[in-house]
Amino acid sequence: MLRFALRRLLVALLVALAVSAASFLLVFLAGDPAVAMLGQGGRAEDAAALRTLYGFDRPLPIQYAAWLAKALVGDFGRSQFFNLPVAAILWERLPTTMTLGVCGLAFALALSLPLGILAALRPNSALDRIALLVAVTGQAIPSFWLGLMLIVLLGVVFPVLPISGADDWRGFVLPTVVLGYYATPGFMRLTRAGMIDVLEADFIRTARAKGLSAPDVVLRHALPNAIIPVVSLAAVQFGFMLSGSIVIESVFALNGVGRLAWESITRSDLPVVQAIVLVFAVIYVILTLAADLLNAWLDPRIRAA
């Protein structure tokens, strides 16, 4: 297990390094960053001055090395819009997005795992159909529309929940539901398919031949074997929820990183955009690593591979 973990960690570090280079270069993809900062109608002398001020005139590898060295100690430069350190801005916004992501994922799993398991136990039953309906609507309804409808229903018509902001936990309820519901179908269908497969397996028959109770057979014998693809998907979905919560944060007026990213792009606040891309990419890498380790813990055969 330790060797497996170390090997995975090494791979993750290499991926993170590649990702950092990509996010560094992102700034240059959109053209000359100095011109972008000045906006349309900027003068050439000013652009030249900016280039010298920010070091854009140096060779790229040197700029990258300097940027990476600072980024490693948490220094992402200063936001041109806020005139504050990027790290401080991120640090202020990250908890909202993280809370939303964790709650969304937890909600999605809490809804989809039991539904997926029950659907697999009785394929084509009424319950299975209902679960399928839940899945299809979740897939089909756009998040922003569901968000708006829930706001109308639970915030305006029956005002039981706040419609915007995150002053207390109640502000997170609707965004969590909207964000989590979108991820539910994938988890549920994957759990159902995996469980149907595993429940047919010979070792399930062995477990039943031992006289084990149905919950033992389903939860202890079948589920750990069926859940492995769900773990991998959950890691990807969680990353997606964090970086993709732009829509939800906008609809519910939450001051998270998603909204910051959107605003910073429209303001050409490049250091902020760059830092967000890097941070989310690294989070993705960490999540993938975590999923790999969790799967290796679930299935000993993965460790040996």
Binding site: D202, F203, G211, H221
Partner: peptide, 24 residues
Amino acid sequence: MAALRGDRMAMIFQDPMTSLNPTM
């Protein structure tokens, strides 16, 4: 029936490669 199975009547199967739970 489940109380009898595995206790007073037991069964072994054809393919030992797939009859054991690989994750346990």
